[in-house]
Design a protein around this nucleic acid. Structure first.
Lengths: 145, 145
DNA sequence: TATTGTTATACTCTATAACTATA
DNA sequence: TATAGTTATAGAGTATAACAATA
Protein backbone atom coordinates (compact mmCIF):
# COMPACT_ATOMS: atom_id res chain seq x y z
CA UNK A 1 0.00 0.00 0.00
CA UNK A 2 2.94 2.36 -0.11
CA UNK A 3 4.06 3.89 -3.33
CA UNK A 4 0.35 4.58 -3.37
CA UNK A 5 -0.71 7.83 -4.95
CA UNK A 6 -4.47 7.55 -4.88
CA UNK A 7 -5.92 10.95 -4.01
CA UNK A 8 -9.45 11.41 -2.73
CA UNK A 9 -9.36 14.91 -4.19
CA UNK A 10 -9.29 13.36 -7.67
CA UNK A 11 -11.91 10.70 -6.94
CA UNK A 12 -14.83 11.46 -9.24
CA UNK A 13 -17.64 10.78 -6.74
CA UNK A 14 -15.91 13.12 -4.31
CA UNK A 15 -15.35 15.85 -6.89
CA UNK A 16 -18.92 15.54 -8.11
CA UNK A 17 -20.23 15.80 -4.59
CA UNK A 18 -18.21 18.93 -3.88
CA UNK A 19 -19.32 20.63 -7.07
CA UNK A 20 -22.95 19.60 -6.53
CA UNK A 21 -22.91 20.86 -2.97
CA UNK A 22 -21.31 24.18 -3.80
CA UNK A 23 -23.55 24.94 -6.75
CA UNK A 24 -26.69 23.56 -5.08
CA UNK A 25 -26.19 25.66 -1.97
CA UNK A 26 -25.55 28.71 -4.07
CA UNK A 27 -28.87 28.35 -5.82
CA UNK A 28 -30.87 27.16 -2.82
CA UNK A 29 -30.93 30.61 -1.28
CA UNK A 30 -33.24 31.71 -4.08
CA UNK A 31 -35.97 29.25 -3.25
CA UNK A 32 -35.11 28.87 0.42
CA UNK A 33 -34.40 32.36 1.70
CA UNK A 34 -36.83 34.08 -0.63
CA UNK A 35 -39.73 31.65 -0.52
CA UNK A 36 -39.01 29.26 2.36
CA UNK A 37 -39.11 26.33 -0.05
CA UNK A 38 -37.25 23.04 0.04
CA UNK A 39 -35.56 21.54 -2.98
CA UNK A 40 -38.33 19.07 -3.76
CA UNK A 41 -40.87 21.88 -3.58
CA UNK A 42 -38.92 23.90 -6.11
CA UNK A 43 -38.71 20.88 -8.39
CA UNK A 44 -42.44 20.18 -8.16
CA UNK A 45 -43.28 23.82 -8.71
CA UNK A 46 -40.96 23.88 -11.68
CA UNK A 47 -42.67 20.93 -13.33
CA UNK A 48 -46.13 22.42 -12.93
CA UNK A 49 -44.92 25.72 -14.33
CA UNK A 50 -42.99 24.26 -17.20
CA UNK A 51 -45.36 21.51 -18.33
CA UNK A 52 -48.72 22.70 -17.08
CA UNK A 53 -51.34 21.13 -14.78
CA UNK A 54 -50.93 17.43 -14.09
CA UNK A 55 -51.53 14.83 -11.39
CA UNK A 56 -49.09 13.97 -8.62
CA UNK A 57 -48.21 10.68 -10.27
CA UNK A 58 -47.40 12.48 -13.52
CA UNK A 59 -44.99 14.67 -11.58
CA UNK A 60 -43.44 11.55 -10.06
CA UNK A 61 -42.82 10.15 -13.52
CA UNK A 62 -41.52 13.34 -15.12
CA UNK A 63 -39.40 14.54 -12.20
CA UNK A 64 -38.24 11.06 -11.20
CA UNK A 65 -39.38 11.65 -7.62
CA UNK A 66 -40.97 9.14 -5.27
CA UNK A 67 -44.66 9.66 -4.56
CA UNK A 68 -44.03 10.37 -0.87
CA UNK A 69 -41.71 13.24 -1.75
CA UNK A 70 -44.20 14.69 -4.19
CA UNK A 71 -47.04 14.27 -1.70
CA UNK A 72 -45.22 16.27 0.97
CA UNK A 73 -44.01 18.91 -1.45
CA UNK A 74 -47.52 19.42 -2.83
CA UNK A 75 -48.94 19.65 0.69
CA UNK A 76 -46.42 22.35 1.56
CA UNK A 77 -47.00 24.29 -1.66
CA UNK A 78 -50.76 24.00 -1.24
CA UNK A 79 -50.67 25.24 2.35
CA UNK A 80 -48.94 28.38 1.13
CA UNK A 81 -51.41 28.73 -1.75
CA UNK A 82 -48.82 28.29 -4.49
CA UNK A 83 -50.57 25.20 -5.81
CA UNK A 84 -54.25 24.33 -6.08
CA UNK A 85 -55.77 20.91 -6.57
CA UNK A 86 -58.93 19.95 -8.36
CA UNK A 87 -60.30 16.47 -7.80
CA UNK A 88 -61.33 14.77 -11.02
CA UNK A 89 -64.94 13.64 -11.02
CA UNK A 90 -64.31 10.61 -13.29
CA UNK A 91 -61.89 9.13 -10.76
CA UNK A 92 -61.87 10.72 -7.37
CA UNK A 93 -58.44 9.30 -6.53
CA UNK A 94 -56.93 11.66 -9.06
CA UNK A 95 -56.46 15.36 -8.58
CA UNK A 96 -55.10 17.77 -11.16
CA UNK A 97 -52.56 20.11 -9.66
CA UNK A 98 -51.84 23.56 -10.99
CA UNK A 99 -50.02 26.70 -9.98
CA UNK A 100 -51.97 29.56 -8.47
CA UNK A 101 -51.19 33.12 -9.44
CA UNK A 102 -48.55 33.36 -6.69
CA UNK A 103 -47.13 29.99 -7.69
CA UNK A 104 -46.81 31.15 -11.29
CA UNK A 105 -45.07 34.34 -10.16
CA UNK A 106 -42.57 32.32 -8.13
CA UNK A 107 -42.02 29.98 -11.06
CA UNK A 108 -41.28 32.92 -13.33
CA UNK A 109 -38.90 34.43 -10.81
CA UNK A 110 -37.07 31.19 -10.02
CA UNK A 111 -36.64 30.03 -13.59
CA UNK A 112 -35.23 33.44 -14.43
CA UNK A 113 -32.84 33.17 -11.48
CA UNK A 114 -31.94 29.63 -12.46
CA UNK A 115 -31.12 30.71 -15.96
CA UNK A 116 -28.93 33.50 -14.67
CA UNK A 117 -27.30 31.25 -12.10
CA UNK A 118 -26.53 28.66 -14.73
CA UNK A 119 -25.04 31.35 -16.95
CA UNK A 120 -22.80 32.54 -14.15
CA UNK A 121 -21.61 29.00 -13.50
CA UNK A 122 -21.02 28.39 -17.19
CA UNK A 123 -19.03 31.62 -17.35
CA UNK A 124 -16.30 29.80 -15.46
CA UNK A 125 -15.99 27.43 -18.40
CA UNK A 126 -15.47 27.79 -22.08
CA UNK A 127 -18.44 26.99 -24.29
CA UNK A 128 -16.78 23.77 -25.37
CA UNK A 129 -15.96 22.77 -21.80
CA UNK A 130 -19.56 23.36 -20.75
CA UNK A 131 -20.78 21.19 -23.59
CA UNK A 132 -18.42 18.36 -22.65
CA UNK A 133 -19.24 18.74 -18.96
CA UNK A 134 -22.97 18.28 -19.56
CA UNK A 135 -22.33 15.33 -21.77
CA UNK A 136 -20.11 13.67 -19.14
CA UNK A 137 -22.57 14.39 -16.33
CA UNK A 138 -25.40 12.81 -18.27
CA UNK A 139 -23.37 9.65 -18.74
CA UNK A 140 -22.24 9.54 -15.10
CA UNK A 141 -25.80 9.98 -13.84
CA UNK A 142 -26.72 6.65 -15.39
CA UNK A 143 -26.63 3.97 -12.72
CA UNK A 144 -24.58 0.86 -13.01
CA UNK A 145 -20.92 0.43 -12.11
CA UNK B 1 -43.07 33.43 -19.46
CA UNK B 2 -44.08 31.53 -22.54
CA UNK B 3 -41.65 30.87 -25.32
CA UNK B 4 -39.66 29.74 -22.31
CA UNK B 5 -37.35 26.84 -22.91
CA UNK B 6 -35.51 26.56 -19.62
CA UNK B 7 -35.08 22.89 -18.76
CA UNK B 8 -34.26 21.69 -15.27
CA UNK B 9 -32.61 18.65 -16.84
CA UNK B 10 -29.90 20.96 -18.23
CA UNK B 11 -29.51 23.01 -15.05
CA UNK B 12 -25.96 22.42 -13.86
CA UNK B 13 -26.72 22.11 -10.12
CA UNK B 14 -29.35 19.53 -10.97
CA UNK B 15 -27.09 17.57 -13.31
CA UNK B 16 -24.25 17.69 -10.80
CA UNK B 17 -26.54 16.46 -8.06
CA UNK B 18 -27.75 13.54 -10.15
CA UNK B 19 -24.27 12.50 -11.16
CA UNK B 20 -22.96 12.87 -7.60
CA UNK B 21 -25.84 10.85 -6.19
CA UNK B 22 -25.52 8.05 -8.73
CA UNK B 23 -21.76 7.70 -8.43
CA UNK B 24 -21.73 8.24 -4.66
CA UNK B 25 -24.34 5.55 -4.06
CA UNK B 26 -22.48 3.18 -6.31
CA UNK B 27 -19.35 3.50 -4.25
CA UNK B 28 -21.01 3.70 -0.84
CA UNK B 29 -21.81 0.02 -0.83
CA UNK B 30 -18.11 -0.68 -0.46
CA UNK B 31 -17.73 1.15 2.82
CA UNK B 32 -21.33 0.80 3.93
CA UNK B 33 -22.30 -2.78 3.16
CA UNK B 34 -18.85 -4.22 3.74
CA UNK B 35 -17.79 -2.23 6.78
CA UNK B 36 -20.91 -0.50 8.09
CA UNK B 37 -19.24 2.86 7.66
CA UNK B 38 -20.70 6.27 6.86
CA UNK B 39 -19.23 8.60 4.30
CA UNK B 40 -17.50 10.84 6.83
CA UNK B 41 -15.95 7.77 8.44
CA UNK B 42 -14.54 6.66 5.12
CA UNK B 43 -13.14 10.09 4.51
CA UNK B 44 -11.49 10.27 7.93
CA UNK B 45 -10.10 6.76 7.58
CA UNK B 46 -8.78 7.66 4.16
CA UNK B 47 -6.90 10.68 5.45
CA UNK B 48 -5.25 8.73 8.25
CA UNK B 49 -4.24 6.00 5.84
CA UNK B 50 -3.01 8.31 3.13
CA UNK B 51 -1.21 10.94 5.20
CA UNK B 52 -0.35 9.08 8.40
CA UNK B 53 -1.19 9.76 12.07
CA UNK B 54 -2.49 13.22 12.85
CA UNK B 55 -4.79 15.07 15.23
CA UNK B 56 -8.50 15.59 14.69
CA UNK B 57 -8.00 19.25 13.86
CA UNK B 58 -5.42 18.31 11.22
CA UNK B 59 -8.03 16.06 9.63
CA UNK B 60 -10.52 18.92 9.73
CA UNK B 61 -8.10 21.12 7.84
CA UNK B 62 -7.00 18.55 5.28
CA UNK B 63 -10.39 16.99 4.64
CA UNK B 64 -12.30 20.27 4.90
CA UNK B 65 -14.68 18.75 7.45
CA UNK B 66 -16.18 20.46 10.48
CA UNK B 67 -14.79 19.36 13.85
CA UNK B 68 -18.14 17.94 14.94
CA UNK B 69 -18.22 15.64 11.94
CA UNK B 70 -14.68 14.47 12.54
CA UNK B 71 -15.37 13.99 16.24
CA UNK B 72 -18.30 11.69 15.56
CA UNK B 73 -16.54 9.81 12.79
CA UNK B 74 -13.48 9.19 14.97
CA UNK B 75 -15.69 8.02 17.84
CA UNK B 76 -17.38 5.50 15.53
CA UNK B 77 -14.10 4.29 14.03
CA UNK B 78 -12.56 4.02 17.48
CA UNK B 79 -15.46 2.02 18.87
CA UNK B 80 -14.90 -0.54 16.13
CA UNK B 81 -11.15 -0.52 16.75
CA UNK B 82 -10.23 0.83 13.33
CA UNK B 83 -8.62 3.91 14.84
CA UNK B 84 -6.61 4.36 18.03
CA UNK B 85 -5.87 7.59 19.83
CA UNK B 86 -2.85 8.55 21.85
CA UNK B 87 -3.07 11.63 24.01
CA UNK B 88 -0.02 13.88 23.67
CA UNK B 89 1.69 14.56 26.98
CA UNK B 90 2.88 18.05 25.96
CA UNK B 91 -0.70 19.20 25.45
CA UNK B 92 -3.36 16.91 26.78
CA UNK B 93 -6.05 18.52 24.59
CA UNK B 94 -4.40 16.97 21.57
CA UNK B 95 -4.55 13.33 20.65
CA UNK B 96 -2.76 11.75 17.73
CA UNK B 97 -5.03 9.46 15.78
CA UNK B 98 -3.80 6.51 13.78
CA UNK B 99 -5.17 3.45 12.04
CA UNK B 100 -5.07 0.12 13.80
CA UNK B 101 -4.16 -3.02 11.91
CA UNK B 102 -7.81 -3.56 10.93
CA UNK B 103 -8.15 0.11 9.97
CA UNK B 104 -5.11 -0.16 7.73
CA UNK B 105 -6.52 -3.29 6.07
CA UNK B 106 -9.80 -1.51 5.38
CA UNK B 107 -7.93 1.50 4.02
CA UNK B 108 -5.99 -0.73 1.65
CA UNK B 109 -9.14 -2.47 0.50
CA UNK B 110 -11.18 0.69 0.05
CA UNK B 111 -8.54 2.69 -1.78
CA UNK B 112 -8.09 -0.23 -4.15
CA UNK B 113 -11.86 -0.35 -4.69
CA UNK B 114 -11.97 3.41 -5.14
CA UNK B 115 -9.27 3.27 -7.76
CA UNK B 116 -11.14 0.56 -9.63
CA UNK B 117 -14.45 2.35 -9.27
CA UNK B 118 -12.97 5.57 -10.59
CA UNK B 119 -11.50 3.68 -13.53
CA UNK B 120 -14.88 2.17 -14.36
CA UNK B 121 -16.50 5.59 -14.25
CA UNK B 122 -13.78 7.11 -16.37
CA UNK B 123 -14.23 4.30 -18.88
CA UNK B 124 -17.50 5.98 -19.87
CA UNK B 125 -15.47 8.99 -20.99
CA UNK B 126 -12.56 9.57 -23.29
CA UNK B 127 -9.29 10.46 -21.65
CA UNK B 128 -9.65 14.03 -22.84
CA UNK B 129 -13.24 14.27 -21.57
CA UNK B 130 -12.17 12.98 -18.15
CA UNK B 131 -9.44 15.58 -17.98
CA UNK B 132 -11.82 18.39 -18.88
CA UNK B 133 -14.48 17.07 -16.50
CA UNK B 134 -12.10 17.15 -13.52
CA UNK B 135 -10.95 20.59 -14.45
CA UNK B 136 -14.54 21.86 -14.68
CA UNK B 137 -15.55 20.21 -11.42
CA UNK B 138 -12.66 21.81 -9.58
CA UNK B 139 -13.76 25.23 -10.79
CA UNK B 140 -17.42 24.64 -9.98
CA UNK B 141 -16.58 23.46 -6.46
CA UNK B 142 -15.25 26.92 -5.65
CA UNK B 143 -17.89 28.90 -3.82
CA UNK B 144 -19.10 32.23 -4.99
CA UNK B 145 -21.79 32.95 -7.57
C1' DT C 1 -9.18 33.96 27.44
C1' DA C 2 -8.23 30.85 23.61
C1' DT C 3 -8.04 26.22 21.78
C1' DT C 4 -9.35 21.17 21.23
C1' DG C 5 -12.75 18.39 21.12
C1' DT C 6 -17.63 16.66 22.61
C1' DT C 7 -22.59 16.86 23.15
C1' DA C 8 -27.13 18.62 22.06
C1' DT C 9 -30.30 20.08 18.79
C1' DA C 10 -32.51 20.86 14.64
C1' DC C 11 -33.26 20.80 9.84
C1' DT C 12 -32.73 18.67 5.16
C1' DC C 13 -32.88 14.73 2.34
C1' DT C 14 -33.68 9.93 1.33
C1' DA C 15 -36.00 5.46 1.69
C1' DT C 16 -39.49 2.21 2.94
C1' DA C 17 -43.51 0.29 5.03
C1' DA C 18 -48.11 0.76 6.39
C1' DC C 19 -52.25 2.92 5.75
C1' DT C 20 -56.74 5.35 3.50
C1' DA C 21 -59.82 6.08 -0.17
C1' DT C 22 -61.29 5.03 -4.24
C1' DA C 23 -61.94 2.01 -8.14
C1' DT D 1 -57.32 -6.69 -5.86
C1' DA D 2 -55.13 -2.74 -7.71
C1' DT D 3 -54.10 2.24 -7.89
C1' DA D 4 -53.45 7.24 -6.09
C1' DG D 5 -52.02 9.37 -2.54
C1' DT D 6 -50.94 10.02 2.68
C1' DT D 7 -48.73 9.21 7.06
C1' DA D 8 -45.20 7.25 10.03
C1' DT D 9 -40.61 6.21 10.90
C1' DA D 10 -35.85 5.85 10.47
C1' DG D 11 -31.33 6.70 8.65
C1' DA D 12 -28.00 9.75 6.64
C1' DG D 13 -26.14 14.39 5.95
C1' DT D 14 -25.52 19.14 7.37
C1' DA D 15 -25.12 23.13 10.50
C1' DT D 16 -24.73 25.61 14.75
C1' DA D 17 -24.65 26.59 19.57
C1' DA D 18 -23.31 25.33 24.02
C1' DC D 19 -20.29 22.94 26.78
C1' DA D 20 -15.92 20.59 29.13
C1' DA D 21 -11.17 20.16 29.57
C1' DT D 22 -6.86 22.03 28.96
C1' DA D 23 -3.68 25.57 28.15
Amino acid sequence: MDGDDFEIADFLPYMLNRAAEATGQGFSRHYKDRYGMLRTEWRVLFHLGRYGPMTASAICARADLHKTKVSRAVAALESRRHVAREVQEEDRRNATLCLTRSGAAIYADLTEEARRYDDRLAARLTREEARILRSCLARLAERGT
